[in-house]
Write a protein that binds this DNA or RNA. Structure first.
Lengths: 247, 247
DNA sequence: GCCATTCAGGTACCATGTACGCAAATAGCA
DNA sequence: TGCTATTTGCGTACATGGTACCTGAATGGC
């Protein structure tokens, strides 16, 4: 039963409820994944090392390898666990805009709860069951609009691009502050601040300056900023749907 | 001159042309960065280790630390070097759509030449001079359209989101194949293929199935796919610009 | 020609993923 | 009730990574 061949973790389900000889497993994929998620939430993914996770569970690092082939696979499991928190109806409501709005806010909530989620998600081409579930609902929101599948995937892609990068921006410098070990306020003032001020004062990039100095949305609460961008993307999609266009 | 304080590398320019006592530097930031880029292009960022870069230059790993504070800063320098290859006019042409199209294709070209670029760019909030230059041109493309700065940054963000994630998708599984050490063809067939087939055959996600089986754009050449998506985003932006709308 | 200063880079330390191997546990069978 | 095949638990060990520290070599000014 040697699997020399590297295969996706989703094709290697956990051996459940075995009935034969041999010691019973003392842990589980889910338990390990939950522990990893807990650590990553509190201290960042880079803190969720095999030894650390094992330590948290009161065991040795190598024990984990009975449940997870490689650390990268654990990332896939973490992503899927986080995605499982996204609560959506089983079927689309018929109002694509409402469905996608709900999906966007749910995704944002999960992304803020697990600041590593979006970075992992966009860095690994993974297709866990919960990602599939969410994606399926996104696609099905456009059912009945008369769009063909290419347009639908295109629009869902547009929305996902926005949602992911908006969350990324919202978290980005917060995470960077944590990684460098400074508290967010100091990071902004002492680390990035002086450089940005220097750029602004140089006057070399006038529109960048305006985007820093004259921006109104920059001073909005994060939720409002997210809502603004989301509405704009949904407006854009609406404008591209021929059957909705006045023309 | 102890800098205990962590500061952005852009506020710590290289000490050029010193006139005092002491040995002359034998290397330079740029030389080190170019070497790192060359290695990363050929074997991935993870191969561009301090030892490896130093080895390529015929020196010891620790010598690099005279020029670059930390490896992360080297990433910022690599990003900026790659961005410097993006060739753009100094001033917008007056045709925002043409300018942004050029920018998108130039960005794609750089992203394909340096498969690590987009991943690093989206994972690090960096503001190197060349990124600023490119961003400034993107913003200035909308000068004269009567849009306020918040709308402009919003539209530029929409475009960037698309361009980055489209390149990411185009490279994504290719990079994953390289990381796992399989050649791309085998990776698709043996690694991801069986799982996708299993999902499709389960029939659990009908629209996902259609997006896999009935998609026409999936079979387009990568350039055409990119062009399609780009046109759609630009159409969407155009539709959102009030002064261009028929209404 | 001496000296303060700067660079080169070897050595060393610690953290990480993980291959290997053996001990412990367990269910079926004698 | 042992015996055995099988499976898990996990200590040890190795390779590889970033980088702190330190010594010696080079260099321009006095």
């Amino acid at each position: 039963m040697a699997d020399e061949e590297p295969t996706s973790i989703w094709t290697q389900p956990e051996a459940h409820e075995r009935s034969g000889p041999g010691r019973r497993p003392g842990y589980s994929r889910e338990q390990i994944t939950r522990t990893a998620v807990k650590i990553a939430d509190a201290e960042g993914v880079e803190a969720a090392t095999m030894r650390r996770i094992a330590g948290e569970l009161g065991t040795g690092a190598m024990s984990l390898y009975r449940y997870v082939p490689r650390r990268d696979d654990l990332f896939d499991l973490m992503i899927d666990l986080a995605m499982s928190e996204i609560e959506l109806p089983d079927d689309p409501s018929g109002d694509w805009r409402a469905d996608l709005t709900l999906l966007a806010w749910q995704t944002r909530a999960a992304g803020l709860r697990h600041p590593w989620l979006i970075a992992l998600l966009t860095s690994r081409p993974t297709l866990g069951p919960n990602l599939l579930r969410v994606h399926e609902l996104a696609l099905s929101a456009f059912n009945g609009t008369g769009l063909d599948i290419d347009d639908i995937t295109g629009f869902v892609g547009m929305l996902n691009d926005y949602v992911h990068s908006a969350i990324h921006r919202e978290i980005g410098w917060l995470e960077e502050a944590r990684r460098t070990g400074l508290d967010p306020e100091r990071w902004k003032r002492d680390y990035m601040g002086p450089y940005v001020r220097q750029i602004v004062e140089s006057g070399a990039f006038p529109l960048f300056n305006r985007s820093v100095l004259d921006s109104r949305t920059a001073h909005l609460a994060p939720e409002e900023r997210f809502r603004h961008g989301l509405d704009r993307i949904l407006d854009a999609i609406a404008a591209l749907i021929p059957s909705l266009s006045p023309r």
